[in-house]
Design a protein around this nucleic acid. Structure first.
Length: 569
DNA sequence: GCCGTTTTCGGCCCGACTGTTTTCAGTCG
């Protein structure tokens, strides 16, 4: 039973208790514990052996016992009992927009409905309007909610969301009354995927800006439209929310709308303990007087904290670090001195080595590693020893011309299913840098997967493990691998783990990065670029690294050429 | 059900939008 399984059970427990109308704060407590468990990187069974379960935020005496029950028996009595009363299908109704716990329970109790198709049928038959508190409008809303549910785009990768958000921001910025339009929400926090786009602006006439927003050409449908906020669904199915307030509230609104929810709740609790109530309008003292926050820094400063970077705002220790003056100095785009995983037209890249190098130089980098595929990747026109040798001559000539800029001669060597590498050690020894990656045999069991990666790390020539977990966002799960074991070997051998910035990879993700940083394992933020313009996607990998609390010292491609050479095996 | 430079008991984030319940509950972010 994984941490995620256990967290899911507590989330469901919270839903079920909410449906039954249990005490609100008990429900909040279960959700908070579930959040804590979901964010825990250590195995719960292991934590329990060490008697450390209560260190998880939100886990107290009762929930500790329930985790124990789950780990011992695989079941939870309270959960089983509630499932008798509330069929699974009732919980599924909650996924329909505008159907919450009260409505779901009412519909189940009065009409016996516990599936979305049945709900749709009842709505079409006009049965919902007969229920107390529901009318024709509610019925239409629910019917529409079901439609939206079917049509709505799932979470979108950050790399896809960013340009859409930019377009939306530009569109809104053209509204005459809109000032300081920016994208906030999970996009600003640089989550690997975002559920919707959150946009905000300042204006002395918020309503005019909201009116302008709902009329933008990108907008497909208006879900709600008030004086200060609106929700729309764009023509491509993505939901976008807008909030607008006067400039004097700009900082508090930005803080509020950037989230996360958990971070905001923590910040507001902290404020209350200092006699202040906080909302997007700013602080209110107990006597009702206001403290305005035109800048986001004002929000944190008012409660005695330094500004917290958006990427850290997940309530996973950032307040404690801020209070202690121990916030990390996160790695920044300006720290990056090169890209250590790129392809050229010697394998499956679209550009020459020189074109890639010039693009890197144009970004202010001082080096780029050309890491073409190795021979077993036939479709990628992978290199054998002979072609590696030929390529080396081209790189040498280029380096003579481009100095002090440096092209590192490298390879992305395939880790084959039998745990051997696709090129002999003698060939690898000739290269400046070796990235080793898995491109086949993803379905091997945990032990074999882990052994393959460990074997690669123990090779004296392998510098970096490429896209270490193999995840493809929305397409393929990460391979089953013992990440803690990998970290131990990475540390032991000085092997670097990659943060691959491809929009559909983002691998390592934030959680893995944080664990690696805690263990002192070094990272490389790399684009895996097959074209010069793709070098710009480094910002996506940077987002993961920053969300994982990585500083420049944790990232090898912030090093000068000399230091990097010393770092590489 | 959790938790404590206010507290081991009494708190627990805050506001907008919508529909229907003529004063507010439900849902959402």
């Amino acid at each position: 039973m994984t941490n995620k399984d256990i967290a899911d059970i507590f989330y469901q427990l919270a839903d079920m208790l909410e449906i039954k109308g249990d005490i609100r704060y008990k429900i909040i407590a279960y959700r908070k514990a579930a959040d804590g468990i979901a964010h825990e990187t250590q195995d719960l069974a292991e934590l329990r052996r060490q008697g450390e379960l209560r260190t998880i935020p939100g886990v107290g005496e009762k929930i500790e016992a329930k985790i124990g029950e789950l780990l011992d028996t695989g079941k939870l009595r309270l959960y089983e009992e509630l499932k008798q009363e509330i069929p699974d299908g009732v919980l599924s109704l909650l996924s329909v927009p505008d159907v919450g716990p009260k409505t779901a329970w009412l519909i189940y109790q009065k009409l016996g409905i516990h599936s979305i198709p049945d709900l749709e049928q009842a709505a079409r038959a006009g049965k919902l309007r007969t229920l107390p508190g529901l009318g024709v409008k509610s019925e239409e809303k629910i019917l529409h909610g079901i439609e939206v549910l079917h049509r709505r785009s799932p979470r979108i990768p950050l790399g896809v969301a960013l340009p859409v958000a930019q377009e939306l921001v530009a569109g809104l910025a053209a509204c005459p009354q809109a000032r300081q339009v920016i994208a906030v929400g999970s996009l600003r926090r640089r989550k690997a995927t975002v559920g919707d786009l959150d946009i905000m602006a300042a204006s002395s006439q918020p309503q005019a800006v909201v009116d302008c927003f709902v009329g933008l050409p990108l907008v497909g449908e208006v879900v709600s439209h008030g004086d200060t906020k609106a929700t729309v669904i764009l023509k491509d199915g993505v939901q976008a929310d807008l909030m607008v307030l006067a400039a004097e509230h700009y900082g508090s609104l930005m803080q509020h709308f950037t989230g996360s929810k958990e971070h905001n709740v923590h910040l507001r609790e902290l404020s209350l303990s200092k006699g202040l109530s906080f909302s997007e309008y700013g602080y209110t003292r107990r006597d009702g007087s206001a403290i305005l926050c035109p800048a986001e820094e004002d929000v944190y400063r008012t409660i005695g904290l330094p500004w917290i970077p958006p990427e850290l705002r997940e309530d996973s220790g950032e307040f404690e670090a801020a209070k202690a003056g121990r916030l990390p100095r996160l790695v920044d785009l300006g720290d990056i001195k090169g890209d250590l995983h790129c392809h050229s037209n010697w394998s499956d890249g679209a550009a020459s080595i020189e074109e890639m190098a010039q693009a890197a130089r144009g970004r202010g980098y001082v080096y780029i590693a050309i890491t073409d595929h190795s021979k077993s990747l036939g479709i990628a026109h992978g290199l054998d020893e002979e072609r590696l040798h030929a390529r080396q001559k081209e790189i040498d000539a280029l380096n003579a011309r481009l100095a002090p800029f440096r092209v590192l001669s490298g390879v992305e060597v395939d880790i084959k299913a039998d745990a051997t590498l696709d090129l002999p050690d003698e060939a690898l020894a000739q290269l400046d840098i070796v990235v080793a990656s898995i491109h086949s045999g993803f379905r091997q069991d945990r032990q074999r997967m882990t052994q393959r990666l460990i074997a690669a790390m123990r090779n004296p020539h392998v510098d970096i493990i490429g896209h270490p977990t193999g995840i493809l966002l929305g397409e393929r799960e990460a391979y089953d691998v013992d990440f803690e074991a990998l970290l131990a070997v990475a540390q032991d051998t000085g092997t670097v783990l990659e943060v691959n910035a491809m929009p559909n990879r983002l691998d390592l993700d934030d959680v893995h990065v944080r664990r690696a940083v805690e263990r002192g394992v070094k990272l490389a933020i790399s684009t895996d670029a097959h074209r010069p313009d793709v070098l710009a996607t480094i910002v996506l990998g940077l987002g993961m690294a920053r969300r994982g609390w990585a500083e420049a010292k944790d990232v090898v491609n912030t090093m000068t050429m000399e230091k990097l050479r010393a770092q590489l095996k």
